[in-house]
């Protein structure tokens, strides 16, 4: 009797999730699959089934191919950048006896601020007549069109997003540092280990679990970039910063190709899922081989 009451209560408490999972997960998921086999244009009352032609067209299109490669290029810029900067911030912060919290909050600000705001400020700082560009032109003779040059544009986006996540990841790493006991360092000091060896032989392996978390999180981020790209480049120049989200948004809501864009979304999901799975496995193998994990 009591068990039965608990059962009903459990379902009652879980009901918000059940409704949510049906309306905003199950139905959209099936709808998306269905749409991807049609030529529906988001407005017309009718549509035709087109089989796999959306998928075939998508794989051949320059936008989708760009999204595929841009994501990995972006990953190679962003992940090392954000990991290096968050390690530096964590190294500096974790040993501070006072005001640690205050510093962490400061470093956290870019994570909480709007991506639109961050993008607009950086755009202003990098605009043609800005002090930085004046300086580069006058002293080094460099005239860089930051958002017009394909590589520079990708780099700027990677920089903004690395800046955004540094404080957050540093926080995760600081908790990793705190798990390393002082005795280990003291023992190493007695054995006469230099700081470089100390970092690679002691800090790094003990930090590895936290670092693994940060790597997985940052790789996940690379597959979901939208705001910064939309605000700064719109995916250009010439698809150089065209991410999956940007491509799907443009096709579905600018070109109104809802069926076609659904096919792209499904391809994007599959690519994301497989990529993260493989990278995760590789990272785990790498950690195990070196005896860190």
């Amino acid at each position: 009797m009591k068990q039965k009451g608990q059962g009903r209560l459990g379902w009652l408490f879980a009901s918000p999730y059940l409704v949510y999972a049906v309306v905003f997960f199950a139905i959209p998921l099936i709808w998306s699959l269905f749409l991807s086999f049609t030529d529906w244009n988001l407005i017309a009352p009718t549509f035709n089934f087109t089989g796999f032609s959306n998928y075939i067209e998508a794989v051949k299109s320059p936008g989708v191919q760009a999204a595929f490669f841009v994501t990995f290029k972006f990953m190679f810029l962003f992940v090392p950048l954000v990991i290096a900067s968050s390690i530096v911030v964590a190294l500096i912060i974790h040993g501070l006896p006072k005001f640690k919290g205050l510093f962490l909050i400061g470093f956290f600000l870019p994570y909480l601020a709007s991506g639109v705001v961050s993008s607009l400020i950086i755009k202003g700082i990098l605009s043609y007549n800005s002090p930085i560009n004046e300086f580069l032109r006058k002293t080094l003779g460099l005239d860089i069109d930051w958002l017009g040059n394909p590589f520079a544009a990708l780099f700027v986006v990677a920089l903004i997003i690395a800046w955004k996540f540094t404080g957050y990841y540093a926080l995760i790493l600081t908790s990793g540092f705190e798990s390393i006991s002082k005795e280990v360092y003291e023992a190493a000091m007695i054995d006469g280990v230099n700081p470089w060896q100390r970092f690679w032989k002691i800090t790094f392996p003990l930090l590895y679990p936290a670092l693994f978390t940060v790597m997985i999180l940052s790789i996940g981020v690379t597959f979901g970039i939208f705001t910064e790209v939309y605000q700064l480049t719109g995916g250009g120049p010439n698809y150089a910063t065209n991410t999956w989200q940007m491509e799907i948004f443009a096709k579905a809501f600018t070109n109104l190709q809802a069926g076609y864009a659904s096919a792209i979304a499904i391809i994007a999901s599959i690519v994301t899922f497989i990529s993260i799975f493989i990278i995760r496995k590789l990272l785990e193998m790498w950690g195990k081989r070196n005896g860190w994990a």
Binding site: P28, S32, I248, A252, I266, A268
Partner: peptide, 8 residues
């Protein structure tokens, strides 16, 4: 991957 759910 949540992107699949955007349009529907």
């Amino acid at each position: 991957p949540a992107i699949i759910l955007l349009i529907p």
